[in-house]
Amino acid sequence: MDHQRREVMRFASVFGLMASVGLIAPAKAEAWSRAAFAEKSLDAVFRVLGASGAETSSALTFTAPEIAENGAVVPVVVSSSSSAEQIAILVEKNPNPLAAQFFFTARTESFVAARIKMAETSRVYALVKAGGIWTMAVKEIKVTLGGCGG
């Protein structure tokens, strides 16, 4: 464990050093994927992300409340024990399922917490891409008061 952490830290400092002297390019800034956010069905978003074959994985942890007192603010936490490049959060019954996506570098932990809106009770998908492979976790979140009004 301790050994592992030292490895990580050494890697981090070497990475930082290389970046600072320009040996490696900084992570490419991702442009906003307007198309993915505009898709209206879950399947279409999976397809645009290239995640259609995603399977559930025990490496992935998805934490969200069983019941959201208000759909305008639903806290979600996604983490993975493998090194994630990308995490996406999808709400099946929202008018546009893709709520948010996050891109990580080698220095970023595979972890993100955010707050999303849900129009109604729905299944929520957490998708994690690591080593080019998508995995997912699903959770139904009940909404007592819809967040459509914003």
């Binding site: 900084p26 991702e30 603010v73 948010a100 707050r115 999303i116």
Partner: peptide, 15 residues
């Protein structure tokens, strides 16, 4: 000076 996090939001991220 190095990017470590990049988030993209749609309209369903909370106020």
């Amino acid at each position: 000076g190095t990017e470590v996090f990049n988030a993209q939001f749609g309209p369903a991220v909370s106020r």
